[in-house]
């Protein structure tokens, strides 16, 4: 879907991106992560031609972006930024409909689409008539995402979209992104410096440092086999083991007959199971299925063993 081949970009004498090659498949939730100044936002802005690369080539859907009209190119790509950038003199409704209006959609199609996309992002209908400054930060970014998706682009670029939000709004918008990605099958390219966010959302994570790519892998592989000290450090060394527990369900480790009094659902993660054991001061939990019946048991030793093999 998106191919970067040997892309370099320097601002003055300072290199921002150095000989970077990336292949982002259709339907991926691709997260670019790295410390600030590592060039991840520059990569994102090169994909929609906001920044031209000095060397190398970028292809979208098999077409070199230099051959395309940048304005038309961007209308086919959703774009969300941390500062949201809603137009202060337009209502939320008009903001969401900005791109379809540029594309010349009819009034009826436009109204129906705004309604649909607002429902998809759970934006209250009464909010549509308000102006951006009358909304909370979380509501504003919901509208920002809605605006990016309004013309139904198959690629969506997001530049640290939730970094400025409070934890509750951030978590709820992250859930929304997971659901949207699963439902629509669009290709997401998402820039963040928050590793928990990356692990939560990504199907693929690319770790960048000083304008170069350090490692590209699925979240779980990244935790299991970090390429070098930098990646290990970035993913929080001590906490890496705990983060890995997020990716394994209790169902995969349970065994034997249920005897323990405390229970946990089979679809909970090992991290949840461990947390519950610590809270209840026990080393075994009975595992329940969807109906609530006890089906098996999990021991603290089952959680710990075999981490290397996963």
């Amino acid at each position: 879907m998106i191919e970067l081949r040997g892309v370099s970009k320097a601002f003055g004498a300072a290199p921002a991106v150095v000989d970077l090659s990336l292949s982002i498949g259709r339907g991926a939730f691709f997260v670019l992560i790295g410390p600030s100044g590592c060039g991840k936002s520059t990569v994102l802005r090169m994909i929609n031609a906001m920044i031209a690369c000095d060397r190398g080539a970028i292809e979208l859907r098999g077409e070199d972006i230099r051959a395309m009209d940048p304005v038309r190119l961007r209308r086919g790509i959703g774009y969300v930024i941390q500062s949201v950038g809603l137009f202060p003199h337009w209502t939320i409704e008009k903001n969401i409909g900005a791109v379809p209006r540029l594309l010349g959609w009819s009034r009826e199609t436009l109204a129906a689409r705004v309604e649909e996309i607002a429902a998809l992002l759970q934006i209250d209908r009464e909010l549509l008539r308000r102006y951006p400054h009358q909304l909370s930060g979380g509501q504003q970014q919901r509208a920002g995402v809605a605006r990016a998706l309004a013309a139904d682009p198959d690629i969506v670029l997001m530049d640290e979209p939730f970094a400025a939000l409070d934890p509750v709004s951030r978590a709820s918008l992250q859930d929304e992104m997971r659901r949207l990605h699963a439902e629509t099958g669009k290709t997401f390219v998402f820039v963040t410096h928050d590793m928990d966010e990356a692990l939560r959302l990504a199907t693929h994570i690319a770790v960048m440092k000083d304008g170069r790519l350090v490692q590209t892998a699925a979240p779980r592989d990244l935790l299991n086999r970090p390429e070098d000290e930098f990646v290990r450090e970035f993913f929080g060394r001590e906490a890496m083991g705990l983060r890995l527990l997020d990716f394994v369900a209790v169902r995969d480790r349970m065994r034997g007959r249920p005897r323990a009094p405390e229970t946990i659902g089979a679809d909970a993660s090992l991290r949840d199971a461990l947390a519950l054991m610590i809270e209840r001061r026990c080393s075994r939990l009975s595992v329940t299925d969807g109906g609530g019946g006890k089906i098996s048991e999990i021991d603290i030793a089952d959680i710990i063993k075999g981490q290397d093999a996963t």
């Binding site: 906001m50 961007r74 500062s83 950038g85 809603l86 003199h89 900005a98 791109v99 540029l102 990016a148």
Partner: peptide, 27 residues
């Protein structure tokens, strides 16, 4: 005109003239 609004407008596909006419001049 807020830089974020200008950046967002450019990013979602406003042409320079549309940006001026629909966003910058009204603001």
């Amino acid at each position: 005109v807020p830089a974020s609004a200008r950046d967002a407008a450019r990013g979602i596909g406003f042409s320079p003239f549309e940006l001026l006419w629909r966003i910058e001049l009204p603001l």
